[in-house]
C-alpha cells in the first residue's frame, strides 16, 4: 500500500504542475498514443492470459468460464 501511495503521489505531482490545453494535444491524439483503440483486442488477450497465468488484473474484468479456475 505504501508503494501504491507513493506512486499515486508521484504521478499526481508530475502532472499537477502541467496543464496541456486541448489544442496542444495533437501528438496525444495520435493513433499511436490512444490505448482506447486497443480495448477490443485487449479484452480477449486478457481472457487468454487469465486462463494461463496465476496473476490477473490490470486490464479490467475478463469474466469466468474458459477453465480459468
Amino acid at each position: 500500500m505504501r508503494a501504491l501511495g507513493l506512486t499515486l503521489l508521484f504521478a499526481t505531482a508530475l502532472g499537477g504542475c502541467v496543464t496541456v490545453a486541448p489544442y496542444e494535444r495533437e501528438y496525444l491524439a495520435s493513433p499511436a498514443m490512444n490505448a482506447e483503440l486497443e480495448e477490443g483486442e485487449g479484452e480477449f488477450q486478457a481472457h487468454v492470459f487469465d486462463s494461463r497465468e496465476g496473476a490477473t488484473g490490470g486490464h479490467g474484468s475478463t469474466g469466468g468460464g474458459c477453465g480459468c479456475n
Binding site: A11, T12, L28
Partner: peptide, 24 residues
Amino acid sequence: ITAGLTLSQVLSPQATVVVGYQLV
C-alpha cells in the same frame, strides 16, 4: 468482488502516464 482505482495523467504534449491498483 474487485475494487479498482486508476489515475491517468497528461504529463506533457507528448507524454501520459496511467497508474492503478486493483484489489480482488
